[in-house]
Write a protein that binds this DNA or RNA. Structure first.
Length: 608
DNA sequence: GGCGGAAACT
DNA sequence: AGTTTCCGCC
């Protein structure tokens, strides 16, 4: 079956970085989960399993303990942790794999969005997201993203996403920032605390040691994506191997790939195949390393229309192949490299020093020059708590340099905006408080329009929600089924996708030809931003569809009212999975759009 | 075990 | 906003 070497699920490294969580200065649970998942030491407590993004918590108590330690919440337990996890359902960051205990699944698409609400390719040499899309490791191909420099765009402070694989930890260590917990010392974040933090003082686990290993730059840019592949670690540690060893890792060579090593997945539960996330090449989609990509591989991108076009197309394709949502994906990763099936190991840039924590990686500059959205920097950076240092309170965080956490947050417009905002129960929805919100059944709005309607490539259908496979028949239009619930999820992604791509007829002031009205580069950004906002607005208006509660508030009028939510949530019914056939047409459309957009962008870019 | 409302906390 | 805590329900 697949290449043994690359087994494992790889999430983009940004996914592992706490900093990447938008708006949160502290590590978020999903980040933490990801961290644990990527470490072999914890494979006996939590491990990938089944489809891409699916993981099982083998030892709930331990996971809870670790989480509690991390957050300095000694009383944490699985019940609480799981509640937090459940909140992710609404956000669509996570899904529960039904029928399997303690098994959840990440929604990669969502994560992308969350992390890159504004995708920026880094202007002037700044960064492209270094992260990588999930790679179908099974196939030996892996993506390679051009490393980028966060530079100005996102976080000047560099913290945000460093090119390397490092997580905060590394950075922290490097800069000696404080950890969130009491131990104000250097703390290596993550796991370490486990040992020394919250109550369970040093337990003396190997974690420490292991932890350190984690820091290794094993994932250099190139290897990034395969993240869990088999790095220089043939020893037998199946790094992120998908299979779930009952205890510790076994070198066994189970099917390395996420296909579904576990029992059950096969056909039993539909959930196993989550189209959206599943990168499993074998599974539903024929992943074909599209040759088209090859040309661009490695080479850097130039903004010429041709390149752009090709590039985007390639991306599109690849995205589709991987079942990723181009919307989210494309813009993010301009230079995807998909190596032919070969040993991933050959990555050019391997970790130079196994033990060296420092990240060697130097940001390569990406050739890209435009940035889609200006990073809303600033804003909350200031929040520097009086480092109390001890206690258990989550103090500190990062003091000095860290300001970046916020960089990702949506700009104000979005923050409150509907597009995403949907969340659960909390106060959001009720801004307006009393007035009953009317829920509009959106039905098709978003797609109808101009842009791309790649509707579904996206996600969720886990059991219906993850991304639906392409319509093989070309005949079907996207989402013939129910435009309802699941569909709207995609909107989010669409936004992303659209934003950059489409020259909006209406709003974009900049004329396609002249491109910039006025300020060259900046206008572009603004344009995107506006565009984005608009899209969101539109979608919001229309999509509301079922989103359970999330939608309630919509963006209409912001009325800050602290009202205890009315709770009117609609029952959410999960639709049984419905796989949608592959959409070819959509794809095509996308390409067109992309091309057009590309052209426009190119022009503009040039002007810059 | 899992879900989700509600309130509180940071 | 993102949990944390508590709880009733299935």
């Amino acid at each position: 079956m697949k290449t043994p070497g690359d087994t494992g699920f790889a999430f983009p490294d940004w996914a592992y970085k706490p900093e990447s969580s938008p708006g949160s200065r502290q590590i978020q649970l999903w980040h933490f989960i990801l961290e644990l998942l990527r470490k072999e030491e914890y494979h006996d407590v939590i491990a990938w399993q089944g489809d891409y993004g699916e993981f099982v918590i083998k030892d709930p108590d331990e996971v809870a303990r670790l989480w509690g330690a991390r957050k300095c919440k000694p009383q944490m337990n699985y019940d609480k942790l799981s509640r937090a996890l459940r909140y992710y359902y609404n956000k669509r960051i996570l899904h529960k794999t039904k029928g399997k205990r303690f098994t959840y699944k990440f929604n990669f698409n969502k994560l992308v969005l969350v992390n890159y609400p504004f995708i920026d390719m880094g202007s002037a040499g700044s960064g492209v997201p270094q992260s990588a899309p999930p790679v179908p490791s099974g196939v030996s191909t892996h993506f390679r993203f051009p490393p980028s420099t966060p530079s100005d765009v996102l976080s000047p402070s560099e913290e945000l996403r460093s090119p390397g694989v490092f997580s905060t930890v590394a950075r922290r260590m490097a800069r000696g920032s404080v950890s969130d917990c009491s131990d104000g010392t250097s703390t290596n974040s993550e796991l370490e605390e486990t040992a020394g933090v919250g109550g369970s003082a040093a337990e003396d686990r190997p974690a420490d040691r292991a932890f350190r290993n984690l820091l290794h730059p094993r994932l250099s840019h190139d290897s990034l994506f395969r993240v869990y592949g088999a790095p220089p670690n043939p020893a037998g540690l199946p790094r992120g191997a998908p299979h779930a060893p009952p205890h510790r890792v076994h070198p066994e060579s189970l099917s390395p790939f996420p296909v579904s090593p576990l029992p059950g997945p096969g056909g039993l539960l539909a959930p196993t195949l989550s189209p959206a996330l599943s990168m499993t090449p074998t599974s539903h989609l024929p992943y074909s390393p599209s040759p088209s990509l090859s040309p661009m591989l490695g080479s850097h991108f130039s903004f010429s229309p041709e390149d752009m076009k090709r590039y985007l197309q390639a991306h599109t394709q690849s995205v589709y192949n991987y079942h990723l949502s181009p919307r989210a994906f494309l813009p993010s990763y301009p230079n995807i490299v998909i190596p032919q099936p070969q040993r991933p190991d050959k990555a050019p840039h391997l970790p130079s020093h196994p033990l060296h924590h420092a990240q060697p990686e130097e940001p390569h500059h990406s050739p890209f020059k435009f940035k889609l959205q200006p990073p809303p920097l600033g804003r909350k950076q200031r929040e520097v708590p009086p480092a109390s240092g001890q206690g258990h309170a989550p103090s500190s965080g990062n003091t000095a340099s860290s300001g970046l956490g916020s960089s990702f947050s949506f700009s104000n417009e979005h923050a409150s905006a509907p597009g995403q905002g949907s969340n659960s129960s909390s106060g959001l929805m009720n801004n307006s408080g009393g007035p009953p919100k009317i829920k509009v059944e959106p039905i098709s709005d978003m797609e109808s329009e101009e842009e791309v309607e790649v509707t579904d490539i996206s996600e969720e259908d886990e059991e219906g929600d993850v991304f639906s496979p392409p319509y093989s028949n070309g005949a079907h239009a996207p989402q013939p089924l129910a435009p309802t619930a699941e569909e709207e999820e995609e909107d989010l992604e669409e936004d992303v996708f659209k934003a950059p791509a489409a020259p909006s007829p209406r709003e974009t002031p900049s004329s396609p030809g002249g491109g910039n009205s006025g300020g060259r580069c900046i206008p572009l950004k603004l344009r995107f931003k506006r565009r984005w906002s608009e899209d969101q607005r539109m979608e919001a208006a229309g999509d509301e569809a079922e989103d359970k509660k999330s939608r309630a508030e919509r963006e209409e009028e912001p009325t800050p009212r602290a009202e205890p939510k009315g709770a009117g949530q609609n029952g959410e019914g999960k639709s049984p999975e419905c796989l949608v056939p592959p959409l070819l047409p959509g794809q095509r459309r996308v390409s067109s759009e992309l091309q057009r957009a590309t052209a426009q962008l190119s022009l503009e870019n040039n002007s810059c």
